[in-house]
Amino acid sequence: MTIRIQTALLAAAVLVPGLSLAQDGAPGTIATPRTAEGHPDLNGTWDNGSGIDFVRPQNIDGSICVTGCPQPESAPPSNAVRLPPERPAYRLEFVDKVRDLEARQVEEDPVLRCLNPGLPRIGPPDKIVQIPGQIVFLYDDVNGNYFRIIPTDGRGYRPNVEETYLGDSVGYWEGDTLVVETVNLIDETWLTDDGSFHTGDLRVVERLTRTGDTLEWQATSHDPAVLAEPWQQRPRIAHLTDQELVEAAPCIERDLPHMQDLSHHDNVR
């Protein structure tokens, strides 16, 4: 039976490139540290997979296999489960616009032109620096390094600032969960890679909860002018790591002028 199943899986794998196990989402193995103010200490570098969980390199007798590598039987299961894509629901009058943008994604998706993905598409922060009254999110994105400075001292949004890709944020604590509300987002970004446009009135609410050495990040997008309902994304889990962020390589896209097929172009997030 085992051989038969293995054979079946091997044969099936000829048709697809990857199979993996469910994400564990296991709670942290250490106690959640706290700051002097009593809040959970979110300081640290947090590995959320960055969309490349499927890259499981192997060192083989001095050679290096980056993708498509034979994995030893003892290898731990990948935590790289990717569930079906999440899509915001649009008001009926905007469905055609979304479909049109999706059909022309290669021509229209700003991320494919090395622009900041914006909120919430950029995903969880890769590093958090937390000091009294202020939290800084740092991002190591394919398109570049980005940052957000989030006051947590009770002040409001900044007046008279330009709309930006990551907007203007304020943070506060709900129990042990950091809530970050963001407005003033530029309307040029997409929520996902399938034409999910938004207006300049988009408001994104992120909730970050540390449990031991894991961090759960969840974002909900509110844009009632175009969305039929708030778009609540599935939580993502990041793990504390001792890997330090590095300066991103410059993003210079050269393929698009030579694309022979203009259907969907993938991107890591």
Binding site: A13, G18, L21
Partner: peptide, 29 residues
């Protein structure tokens, strides 16, 4: 890549398969 899979058996005659297409340079939701 026929090696690029893992499996998890659930019970005696049932297991879960998660399918992921992998791109060189990009993966796609």
């Amino acid at each position: 890549d026929p090696f690029f899979f893992e499996r998890e058996f659930r019970g005696r005659d049932r297991f879960r398969v998660v399918v992921r297409t992998v791109e060189m340079g990009y993966t796609k939701s």
